[in-house]
Amino acid sequence: SRGQLFDTVVNTVLEKLVAAGSYERFASCYRCFYKLQPEMTRSIYEEFIFQLQASIKEEIQEVKKEGKLELLFDSLDKLVEEAKEQQEPAWRPSGTPEEDASSAMVPYLLKHQSYLRRVLKEKEKDNKQLAEAVLAGRGRIKELQQQIQARREAWE
C-alpha cells in the first residue's frame, strides 16, 4: 500500500544515511577530538545518531499528520483498486476551469431540463383547461349578448 511504501522508502533513506555517517567516518572527521577523548567521541556520536533518527522520524510523522497522508493514501489505494478494470486513460482537467466546471454542471442542467420539461407540460395542461374555460365563458357571454339583442329587437 502507498502508506507502507512511503514509510519504507523514508526509513530506508534514513537507515542508509545513518549507515553512511558511520562512527568511523564521524571519528575521522573529528580526529583531533577523537584522539583527545575517544570514549566521549563514541558517546557523542551515538547520542547524535539517536537524536537524528528520533527527530527526523518525529518530523516525518508530523508531515504525515499535517497532510493526513495515511487517510489519503488508503483512499487512493482503494480508488486505484476500483479503477483496475479501466484501461483507457481517464478524463483530466482541461486546464480551463470554467470549461471543466461547466461540464460538471451537466447533471444539474439535465435534472433542471427534465424538471422544466415536466412543469412546462403541466403548465400547458393547466392552461389548456383554463383556455377551455375561457372559451366556454366567451361562448356564454356571446349567448347572453344574443339574448339581450333578441329582447331589444322584440321591443324594437
Binding site: E124, N127, K128, L130, A131, V134, L135
Partner: peptide, 8 residues
C-alpha cells in the same frame, strides 16, 4: 404569442 394558448 409563443405559448400553447397564443391563439385564445
Amino acid at each position: 404569442l409563443q405559448t400553447s394558448q397564443a391563439e385564445v
